[in-house]
Amino acid sequence: MDLDDIPMTPHDDQAKQNALIAYIFMLLGLVTGVFWLVGAVWAMAKANTAKGSVFYDHFQNITRVFWWSLIMSVIGLLFAIFFFGYLILLGVWLWSVYNLVKGFVRLTSDKPFHSS
C-alpha cells in the first residue's frame, strides 16, 4: 500500500504543518543565521506531538541537521586559520542545504523523509 492511499489524519496534518514551519525557519536560517536556531528549537519542541505521524522522521531530520551542522561548524571554525577549515564550513553548508531541501520537498509531497 502506498502512502498516497492512506488518508491523512488531523494528527498528520498538524505534524506536517509544524515540520513545514521548522523547515522554513531552517532554510531562512541558512542565510540569516538567527532563524536556524528558531527552526531547530521549533522542531525539537514539536517532535513529541508528531509521534505516530507519518511525518515524525522529518523532525528527526531537522534535529539531526541542526546538531551535526553545529558540531561540524565549530570544528570548521577552529580550523579556519587553515584553508581546510573553510572547506569544512562549505561542506557543512552544502550538506545542510541538501538535507533541508530534500526534506522540504518530501514533506510537501506528503512523504516521510525516509521512504523507499
Rank of each mutant, 00 (worst) to 15 (best):
M1K: 12
M1F: 13
M1P: 11
D2R: 11
D4F: 12
D4E: 14
D5H: 11
I6W: 07
I6G: 05
I6P: 02
P7S: 08
P7K: 07
P7N: 07
M8V: 08
T9P: 04
P10E: 09
D13F: 07
D13T: 10
A15G: 03
A15W: 01
K16A: 12
L20D: 14
A22D: 03
Y23A: 00
Y23L: 02
I24G: 08
F25W: 07
F25N: 00
M26R: 00
M26G: 00
L27K: 00
L28F: 12
G29L: 01
G29K: 00
T32M: 12
F35E: 06
F35C: 11
W36Q: 02
W36D: 01
W36H: 04
L37T: 14
V38F: 14
V38N: 05
G39M: 02
A40C: 08
A40V: 03
A40Q: 03
A40W: 06
V41N: 05
W42E: 03
W42A: 00
W42K: 05
M44C: 08
M44R: 08
A45N: 12
A45T: 11
K46C: 05
A47F: 04
N48P: 06
T49K: 12
T49Y: 06
S53N: 02
S53C: 03
S53Y: 01
S53W: 01
S53T: 04
S53A: 05
V54E: 07
Y56G: 04
Y56I: 11
Q60M: 12
Q60W: 09
N61Y: 03
N61I: 03
I62Y: 01
I62C: 03
T63G: 07
R64W: 12
R64K: 13
F66V: 03
W67L: 11
W67I: 09
W67E: 04
W67D: 05
W68L: 12
S69M: 06
L70Y: 08
L70P: 02
I71T: 10
M72T: 11
M72L: 14
S73H: 04
S73A: 11
V74A: 10
V74F: 10
I75V: 15
I75Q: 01
G76E: 02
F79W: 13
A80W: 10
I81E: 09
F82V: 13
F84H: 10
Y86W: 15
Y86D: 09
L87G: 14
L87F: 15
I88E: 07
I88H: 06
L89G: 03
L90F: 15
L90N: 09
G91R: 09
V92D: 01
W93H: 08
W95I: 10
V97H: 06
V97S: 08
Y98N: 15
Y98R: 14
V101N: 10
K102Y: 14
K102W: 11
F104S: 08
F104Y: 15
V105Q: 13
V105W: 13
R106E: 14
R106D: 10
L107A: 05
L107N: 01
L107Y: 02
T108H: 12
T108S: 12
S109Q: 15
D110G: 05
K111M: 12
K111P: 04
P112M: 08
H114I: 15
S116Q: 13
S116G: 15
